[in-house]
């Protein structure tokens, strides 16, 4: 039977939705297991069991986090060998893709990134060229390594929870020998809003907000969504770079993307074009963003957004 291994890296107190999606996909491929890194608390262990994993592999070394990517790839390669997995699933983050990249070289395995769906036979679906094409791709190798975007599948628990065995995997002694060291980390304060790449709703502001993200944030909060931004807004320093959506920012595909005061340049579109429903508010009728909007409003965002926020609050009572 096919075996899929899900890499879960430092989930903290609870598994992220993207990890639950990976576990759901893994189960659809065959027997599933987890290669875990970090502290494993009881809730996380229970959640892994509930999603049907047959085993949890853990590294013998605990200092993998002190280095960039390389030793995690070395650990994961050892976990693949220990588990006999033929598919490895990782999240589609910068770290996830790079761990996948190095794992691919170590195992001579094909790597497919930006996956949005996996068929039972291992065929991966992805969108390429900034959402202009959808393709199917397959690894031609004994092991396939896939990085999967968030919001790709509906999360489902296994029909019967498993009691996964825990297996310690020996991390190769030279795993960190040529790795770059992480010498300091500064955490950014939590916003209380959903994670941008996982959010169901994103409200994004651009140069048109002219330094004031207040109306954008208020609408995002009324909709329970995340806040995004164009590069013009992040370059101006009105909001942090980690809010940037686009080619060199985050790629999002929420149910709803509301674009306010953003012209819709190709690099911005690259990050949001696959959103289910796109709403645009822009005072320039000629803005390219209207070409991709399902609902467009030619108007002033400082009038339209607050009015919509009030109306939503009224209707939600």
């Amino acid at each position: 039977m096919a075996k899929a291994l899900v890499f879960i890296d430092n989930p903290g107190g609870a598994l992220k939705k993207s990890s639950l999606e990976l576990l759901t996909i893994a189960r659809s491929l065959g027997e599933s297991a987890v290669a875990f890194n970090g502290e494993l608390n009881d809730d996380v262990a229970a959640s892994i069991a509930a999603h049907g994993a047959a085993a949890i592999y853990r590294p013998s070394a605990t200092d993998l986090d002190g280095y960039l990517v390389a030793p995690k790839a070395a650990y994961l390669a050892a976990a693949v060998a220990a588990s006999g997995a033929d598919t490895v699933l990782l999240e589609n983050s910068a770290d996830g893709k790079e761990i996948a990249a190095r794992l691919g070289v170590k195992l001579n395995a094909g790597v497919i990134t930006d996956v949005v769906g996996v068929d039972a036979d291992g065929t991966a679906h992805k969108s390429v060229l900034a959402g202009a094409y959808t393709t199917t791709a397959k690894a031609r190798t004994a092991v396939a390594v896939l990085t999967v975007k968030p919001n790709s599948v509906d999360v489902a628990e296994a029909p019967a929870a498993g009691a996964p065995e825990t297996v310690t995997v020996e991390v190769p002694a030279d795993a960190a020998a040529t790795a770059a060291r992480i010498t300091a980390r500064s955490e950014r304060p939590a916003t209380g809003r959903p994670e941008l790449t996982e959010a169901r709703v994103v409200v994004a502001g651009g140069r048109g907000v002219d330094g004031d993200f207040g109306p954008v944030e208020a609408l995002a909060d009324a909709l329970g969504g995340a806040v995004g931004a164009s590069r013009a807004a992040t370059d101006a320093g009105w909001i942090g770079h980690d809010y940037q959506v686009g080619q060199t920012g985050k790629t999002v595909s929420p149910q709803l993307y509301i674009s306010a005061g953003i012209s819709g340049a190709i690099q911005q579109k690259a990050g949001m074009q696959t959103s289910k429903v796109i709403v645009a508010i822009n005072k320039d009728a000629e803005s390219p963003v209207f070409e991709i909007a399902d609902f467009g409003i030619i108007g002033d965002l400082f009038k339209v957004l607050p009015q919509a926020t009030e109306e939503i609050k009224k209707r939600k009572g």
Partner: peptide, 21 residues
């Protein structure tokens, strides 16, 4: 190590309703 088996142009997003405030 990977092969692209099929490719389909995403149907262009048809512009939806545009209104003036």
């Amino acid at each position: 190590l990977t092969v692209v088996e099929t490719a389909a142009a995403r149907p262009p997003r048809t512009a939806g309703t545009i209104i003036t405030d």
